[in-house]
Amino acid sequence: MVVLATKVYVQGDARERSLDALRSLVGNEIEDLDVEYTVGVRRDDFAVVTIEGDDEVVARNVLREEFGEITPDFEAGETYVGTLESWDEDGFVLDAGEDVRIPASELGLGQGTPVQIVERFGLVQHVPLRFVYGGDADDSEAEDADADGADASETGRHRLADEERDRLYEWTRGAGRVNVNSATRGEVRATVNRAGHARDIVTVERLGLLEQSIVCKDETDPPGLLAAIGDYLPAEIRCVIP
């Protein structure tokens, strides 16, 4: 069994459509392997894939690489994936099977409060983010280590992974984006088409099962696109403006 680092948090017909989309995504990744699989959802909304067959080890590794994995155990200094659960003036809280708080000082995303950073980088709730687990040192140990110039992984404080910081900064260097949650990639593409803006975008990039990033063309105004599709999507939507 693999617990994927992506959530199915919508209900009703939308939940069934989401599970159908997840089955298709999983099938695309492992259909050539000698395995049988079933897709489900844990009580905490994380997607679960149960795999059996001669290639089950390979299949699990493929899915871990594609989606990230929620694991019960952490090691200091190692990189994991969690979904953005909440944010406040003190930092981010990621859900990685347990709450992992990333202090504001360990986000590494430039000036501003965490709330301002969410707006600047167009982050929406539940988007998967990679982080480095910092261990279990208590606050006094963390302060002492900070005074000695230690890395966050040695202080007991978690931080965003370098590759995650690079990805988010790359978003701000492009033509602009509109990020969405609570909808599959197919639903977002259909919504853009319905709103008459298919020619205004480059692609819809999948961030998680229900978190998407609409990549705009150079001449497209992200706030204008958001306004055009907002009425069609019962979702959290934010812009990334270069």
Rank of each mutant, 00 (worst) to 15 (best):
L107P: 11
E236M: 09
Q116Y: 02
T191C: 13
I30D: 02
H158G: 07
D32V: 10
L63E: 01
G40K: 09
L33T: 09
G68W: 00
E65V: 06
E187Q: 14
G156V: 02
E69P: 05
V2F: 00
Y80I: 12
L168V: 10
V26N: 06
P128I: 11
D218W: 05
A96R: 02
Q111L: 13
V100W: 07
R23W: 02
T38M: 09
V100A: 08
R15A: 15
G77N: 04
E78Y: 02
E85K: 13
L94I: 09
G110S: 05
A137S: 12
G196A: 03
H197E: 12
R120A: 15
V124R: 05
R17W: 01
D144S: 14
A104G: 11
E187C: 00
G91Q: 03
P103T: 01
A104S: 14
T155C: 06
G134S: 00
A161N: 11
L84I: 12
L94F: 04
L4R: 02
V178Q: 09
Q11P: 00
G112A: 10
A104H: 02
Y9D: 14
E219H: 13
E163M: 09
Q111R: 14
L210C: 08
D136K: 12
S213L: 06
R17E: 15
L207N: 10
Q11T: 14
S105H: 12
N181K: 10
I117Y: 01
V93G: 03
L94D: 11
T172Y: 01
I51F: 01
L109T: 05
D95G: 04
D221G: 06
V188S: 10
F46E: 12
P223D: 07
L123H: 03
E205C: 01
V26W: 02
L84P: 08
D144Q: 14
C239Y: 00
A21E: 15
H158V: 07
E75K: 13
L63I: 00
S182H: 14
D138L: 06
I51E: 02
S182L: 15
E85Y: 09
S140T: 12
V39P: 05
G12L: 01
S105N: 12
D148P: 00
R199L: 13
A235R: 10
V57T: 14
F131M: 10
G208Y: 08
A59V: 06
L19H: 07
P128F: 05
E75A: 13
A76S: 15
N179T: 07
Y9H: 15
D136C: 07
E187Y: 00
A96S: 10
T6C: 05
I117G: 07
A96H: 03
Y9K: 09
E36M: 11
T203G: 07
T184S: 12
V39D: 04
M1G: 11
A5R: 03
P242C: 04
R173Y: 11
F121V: 08
I102R: 04
D136F: 10
L123G: 02
R165N: 10
V204G: 11
L4Q: 04
E98T: 12
T203R: 15
L233H: 03
L129W: 05
E89S: 14
I229R: 05
R165M: 12
A47T: 08
L84F: 10
E78A: 12
G82C: 05
E89M: 08
D218Y: 09
R60N: 13
